[in-house]
Amino acid sequence: MRVRVLIPLLVIVLYGVVPFALAGNNYVMSILVAALIIAGVALAWALLGNLGGMVSFGHAAFFGVGSYISAIVTMKLGVPVFAAMLLGGAGAAVAAVAVLPALRLSGPYFALAVLAYAHIFKILATEFTTITGGAGGILGIPTLPRVLGYDFGSKVGGYLVIVTIVLLFALVYARIRNSYYGYALRAMHDSEDATRVVGVHSTLLKALMLFLSAFMTGVVGAFNAHCINFLEPDYAFSSGWTMLPVVAAIFGGYRTLTGPLVGAVVVYTVDQLVFKSLIPSGHQIIFGVLLGVMILFAPDGLIPLLAKKLQWVRQPRGCRDPRTESVC
């Protein structure tokens, strides 16, 4: 099996080669860390989109809530950073409870309702000045700690943490997709009514996917907060945290596991290294172009397209339908 070879190879490259090859180059390392942050959110977004069948334009809300909660509990309650990151994720999942009534809305309505939620959370963060510091933001958020003599606050340390987070999320995603729940969720794409008839609690499953996606996004947001040590509402809840993951997932192929990850790294790096210097203000125009081109010409994304071109993976029996994502 190709996968059995690829995964250990990937792990060796990510943990063994990349940190040593790029250790001296802080600039590239910080771009890579930022790209992996986007990758984490993109994965969470794709999980909701692919398994839950819901397109969200409000993941910035979960990102922001996660980052704020983690920053506040470390600074005000003295919670250790790694525990606080989990709390940030849990907080984002709790925030997702507020989104639950939107679940009864179908596709486009859900997407826009979540967009409205993102606005609400941003305004709340700006207005609850006693807890969040308001528009002035929070300064001096603790960096990742030193564990067993290794300083995770360094660039390479941060990289190792975010790589681990993203890989763990990918593992969870893959597990769910291949479980009973994964099949149920996939069946819901074709006919939610029929799936309900055979005894699948579709609303509950969708809600669980929403919580999981929010949790993942919150953890990544929390990591980001401890990585840059500064938060303000306009930054933490910036629509960029929604837009970039959407672009990354659509570019890579949001129905695949690797698509959002590859998409995030490619899109973010190219944007930072090329377009940001070409068009300093408004370089995000390229994301819009990319979304349009992908939806019109390759709605499945890059990874399935490449796989088809290169015949990477032989199609196993019963997996002819591209939507059952036999690729990856």
């Binding site: 596709g107 408004g282 019109l296």
Partner: peptide
């Protein structure tokens, strides 16, 4: 079309907003 059009028009919105910005 329902969901893809949403993402497509989202992209067009990004293009127009950033064009105004530029």
């Amino acid at each position: 079309r329902e969901l893809n059009s949403l993402i497509l028009t989202f992209g067009i919105g990004i293009i127009l907003t950033n064009a105004a910005l530029i």
